[in-house]
Design a protein around this nucleic acid. Structure first.
Lengths: 306, 306
DNA sequence: GGCTGGCTTCCGCCCACCGGAAGCAAAGGA
DNA sequence: TCCTTTGCTTCCGGTGGGCGGAAGCCAGCC
C-alpha cells in the first residue's frame, strides 16, 4: 500500500478521463443514467470533485446549469454543492452569475510541494535561463502518463507554444516529457511504450522502437533535443532535474524556433546552458552529488543527440 | 444575492479564522465537542474543506492523525475522507506516509481567473520591472480584508521579504495592500478603518486617521510608498492595476532596501517604472483609457507620499 | 514481553444528503 | 400584453451513505 511519491494513489487511474467537452445537446440527464455505474460521483466528495473537474481552461466560467449538465448531477444537487463550494471560496460567483474557480482553492493548491515548492527553488535558475535566451523556458513534472507544466516563462516575441501552466501533454511528444519518461520507473515506460503514441506532426515519434532508442539516448546524454514533434516550427532542449533521493523529479526545457524554419536556432548552443540550469536546480533541491554520472560513461559529452 | 465578483460569497466570513496552529496537547477531541456548534464541519463538504485548511506553508506534510487532530475529526472519519481526497489527487501520500497537497488540486487551482489568469497577462511586465530593478516584484489581489500575493519575483540577493506566493497580509501594512485598500469599495475601507490595526514595526500605521489620509494620498497620486511598515529594512512602491470595468483588480509593487538602511534606494526613482508597469498590465487586461485620471488633479505627480 | 502511538478495517445506527417538484424571475417571441 | 422558455432557488419527505466507536494490526521503544 505504500506508494511512490510520484504515484498519487493506488486506485487512481493514471490517464484520468478527459471530459470530451461540455455535452451541448440536452442529452439524457435522466435519473436513470445517474443511478447506475457512473464515474466518480457516488460519494459526496466524488460529486464535489466531479464539479471541480468540469472547469477547464476553455471553460473557466460556467453557470449552474452548465455545471450540473457537465457533471451529470441534478440541478438541485449541483445547486447545493456549488453553494457550499462558493461559501468556502473554492468557487466564486461573478456579477454575471457564472461560477469560476476561486482564489481560496488556488491558495491551497499553491501548497502543493510538487508544483509551487519546486517552482520556488527553480525560479532563479529559470530566470537566468530566460534571460540568456529570451525565448521560452519551461518546468514540468510527471503525473502518470502525462507531463504537467508547472511554470513557463515566455517572451512575447518568442515562438508560440501550445503548452500552458497547469496544462498537460503526453510524455512522448515533448522535450520535457521525453526526459521525464526516460527517467521514469520502468513500469511507466513500458506502459507508455505499449500504448498508442498519438502523432501531432510528421516528426512526432510514433514507433515504440524509435522511442525506446531515443529514451536510451537521453539517459546517456542527460539531455533531450526534440525537434518539431508538437509544432514543426519549434524545437526544445530539455534536461532532468534531480531531487534529494537523486531521482528525477522534474525537467526543464528551452523552446526556440526550429533550425529548419526562419530565425531558427542551432540546438547545440543551448545544451550547456540548459544542462547547467538543471544541475543548479538539482543542487538547490538537495540532490546528492552534482557530478553524478554512471562511472562507465563519458562524464560530459555535449554531443547533441538525434 | 448577486454579489460583487471580489466578494466570494455572502455568507463567507471575511476574516477567515486562521487556525491557531496545530493543537499540540491531546486536547478534548471528544465527540461531545464535535457534535454541537462547530465551525464549518457540519456537512461533508465542510469537513473536506476543514481537512484542506489544515495545510499551511509551515505544515505542508501531515500524517493522518495530525490531520484528524487539527481538523478536529475522528480518526476513522478523517481516514475515509483523506482516502477519497488522495484517490482523486487532491492529496498525495509520500513514502513517509505523510500527506501533502496534490498536484491535481494545484491544477484546478491554476484555473482561478483572479490568480493565474491575471498572472499570465501581468508576467511580461513584471519581468521587465524585475529586470530593471533586480529586486523584488510583487503582484497581489484583495480578498476580504487581506491582500493575497499572486506572484513574486525575487532576486536571490535582494532584500528578504516576509510575503510569499499564496500568502496573505493585512491590507494596511503593505504597499500593495494600501493600494488595494485605497481603491476598495467604501464599505471595506470603513470596515478596515474600524478594526484594530495590528502593528508590525514602529512605523506601521496604526492610527485610523493617519491611514485615512494616506489612502487619500494614494488615490490622488496613484502610487503608494510604504517605508518599513512590515520590516524596517525594506520599502515598497506600489501602484494599482485596473481591469475591464476600470475598477482596481490588483496591485503591483517593487520592494527595495529602505533608504534609511545600508544600500538603501531612494523611492522616487522607482515611481515612474512601477506606474508604467501597472498601466501596461491594466492595458493588457482591457482597462478603458490608460490616461484616466481625475480632471482636477495633476496627471503625473511623482511626489512620494509620506 | 509489554507498551505506546499511529494506521486500517468493520459494521450497525441514524441523520443529513438527495432530488423531484413547485415556485420565481428574466428574457425573448408572437 | 401574454405566453413560453430557460435558468435559478426553495422545500420537504424518504432513505442510503456517512459516521465513528471499537477492535485489530503493525512498528518502534523501553
Amino acid at each position: 500500500m505504500t506508494t511512490d511519491a510520484t504515484q498519487p494513489g493506488p486506485a487512481r487511474p493514471v490517464g484520468r478521463p478527459r471530459r470530451p467537452g461540455l455535452p451541448t445537446g440536452s442529452g439524457l440527464t435522466s435519473s436513470v443514467a445517474r443511478r447506475s455505474g457512473r464515474s466518480g460521483g457516488e460519494t459526496v466528495t466524488g460529486r464535489v470533485f466531479s464539479i471541480l473537474e468540469v472547469f477547464d481552461h476553455d471553460h473557466s466560467a460556467l453557470t449552474l446549469t452548465e455545471i450540473a449538465r457537465a457533471a451529470s448531477l441534478p440541478v438541485s444537487t449541483a445547486h447545493r454543492l456549488v453553494g457550499e463550494l462558493a461559501a468556502w471560496g473554492a468557487l466564486e460567483r461573478g456579477p454575471d452569475g457564472a461560477y469560476r474557480i476561486g482564489l481560496r482553492l488556488w491558495e491551497v493548491g499553491s501548497l502543493a510541494p510538487r508544483s509551487v515548492g519546486l517552482r520556488e527553488r527553480a525560479m532563479p535558475f529559470l530566470e537566468d535561463l530566460y534571460e540568456a535566451t529570451r525565448q521560452n523556458v519551461q518546468l514540468a513534472v510527471r503525473d502518470g502518463h502525462e507531463g504537467v507544466y508547472v511554470e513557463r516563462l515566455a517572451h512575447p516575441e518568442a515562438v508560440r507554444l501550445f503548452s500552458r501552466v497547469g496544462g498537460r501533454w503526453p510524455l512522448h511528444g515533448t522535450g520535457v516529457g521525453q526526459v521525464l519518461l526516460a527517467f521514469a520507473p520502468p513500469v511507466v515506460q513500458e506502459s507508455v511504450l505499449a500504448s498508442p503514441l498519438t502523432s501531432f506532426t510528421t516528426r512526432t515519434i510514433t514507433d515504440p522502437a524509435v522511442l525506446r532508442r531515443t529514451l536510451a539516448g537521453i539517459r546517456r546524454d542527460g539531455v533531450a533535443v526534440c525537434d518539431g514533434m508538437i509544432d514543426l516550427a519549434s524545437l526544445s532542449v530539455a534536461a532532468p532535474v534531480r531531487g534529494e533521493a537523486d531521482s528525477v523529479v522534474a525537467a526543464i526545457s528551452v523552446v526556440v524556433p526550429s533550425p529548419s524554419s526562419p530565425g531558427g536556432i542551432e540546438p547545440r548552443t543551448l545544451v550547456p546552458a540548459v544542462r547547467a540550469a538543471a544541475r543548479g536546480i538539482s543542487r538547490a533541491l538537495g540532490a546528492p552529488t552534482p557530478s553524478r554520472t554512471p562511472r562507465a560513461v563519458r562524464p560530459e559529452v555535449p554531443r547533441p543527440s538525434s
